[in-house]
């Protein structure tokens, strides 16, 4: 009884408890997969930085798979036909040698087998969604920004053109009058600046403590994927121990709070709406959690792209969620 008490108390109040040892091999395979593979591969979720591993055990021999998992660098160097083809197919991003031992590779294979059997077929959501994409559209905030920029640029160009052309008919200029004009312009510019500051600063996205979010989603970014969960994942050891959300669904019109951190380098968490326009973003930083609050009014499929360069797989680092 005292042991249970100690465990419960330790879990609730101790700083950070050690990860619970997961004894069974299948569990080990799942944890290994989440920690080492899931940043580039899915099982039935479609290809990402690397191929979808659904049914990989049926496509390739066990011997080949074990060798590729443990020594991908050597197989590529030896110009193994399949390995080279995969490198070509996946934008020449090579699979790194993760230092896995044969027993670990076996455990991984066991997980791939079990997960392939559990998942019916690779998800076709992205493919179908992409096929249905129409012309890109500009939503209001973005077109306002572009409009303001074009308008001011046009004024700058017109003024410069007018002054440039005036040199065709040279004449002495009344400097005193010009300085008076400058004073007026300086004052006007200052007023415009102060007004612009007053108008735009309240729109800053930083969390307002008085608002209570309807839903909290934890996001752990890593090279090269985003992991969603209901519990904070703050280290690689948490992966596999804390359940992750494979398919994230959010209620429409709810205030959602993403708590974004990173397990390795700086990443960006950019939320793109169904119009394929940026709605909100925050940085994912190692050691810190950024709190991003968004109210997603419109239903549909939202994409998340990495908006801070994070090495070779940066452009392939993406995720998404459904809003209903």
């Amino acid at each position: 009884m005292h042991r249970i008490v100690a465990v419960v108390l330790a879990l609730l109040f101790a700083p950070v408890g050690p990860a619970r040892a997961e004894a069974d091999a299948a569990g080990q395979g799942r944890i290994l997969f989440e920690q080492k593979c899931a940043s580039c591969h899915t099982i039935g979720g479609g290809p990402r930085v690397g191929p979808d591993l659904h049914g990989a055990h049926q496509r390739r021999s066990e011997e080949w798979l074990i060798r590729f998992i443990t020594q991908p660098d050597r197989m590529i160097a030896e110009k193994d036909e399949v390995a080279v083809r995969l490198v070509e197919q996946f934008n020449r991003i090579v699979m790194p040698n993760l230092g896995l031992k044969e027993a670990e590779a076996q455990a991984l294979l066991g997980h791939i087998r079990a997960a392939s059997d559990a998942a019916a077929a690779p998800a076709e959501i992205p493919a179908a969604a992409v096929a249905a994409l129409g012309r890109p559209q500009l939503i209001a905030p973005q077109s306002i920004v572009l409009g303001i920029f074009f308008f001011i640029s046009a004024i700058i160009l017109l003024v410069f053109a007018w002054v440039g052309l005036s040199t065709r008919s040279p004449e002495e200029v009344n400097v005193k009058k010009a300085y008076g004009f400058r004073k007026a312009m300086f004052a006007t510019a200052s007023v415009v600046v102060v007004a612009a500051l007053a108008l735009t600063m309240p729109g800053a996205p930083y969390a307002v403590a008085s608002l209570k979010p309807d839903r909290i989603v934890y996001v752990a970014a890593r090279q090269f994927d985003f992991v969603f969960s209901d519990e904070p994942i703050t280290s690689a050891a948490d992966l596999g121990r804390i359940p992750t959300l494979q398919r994230l669904e959010l209620p429409a019109d709810a205030l959602v709070e993403f708590r974004v951190t990173s397990l390795d380098v700086n990443h960006g968490f950019g939320v793109y709406g169904p119009e394929r326009q940026l709605l909100a973003q925050t940085q994912a930083m190692p050691g810190y959690v950024n709190r991003l609050r968004v109210r997603l009014a419109q239903g549909g499929y939202y994409k998340v792209f990495c908006l801070e360069y994070c090495a070779a797989g940066h452009h392939a680092m993406q995720s998404g969620f459904n809003v209903k």
């Binding site: 905030p141 735009t200 729109g203």
Partner: peptide, 10 residues
């Protein structure tokens, strides 16, 4: 501008 930067950053 912070409120525009949300849409433009990176």
């Amino acid at each position: 501008t912070i409120s525009a930067n949300v849409r433009l950053h990176n």
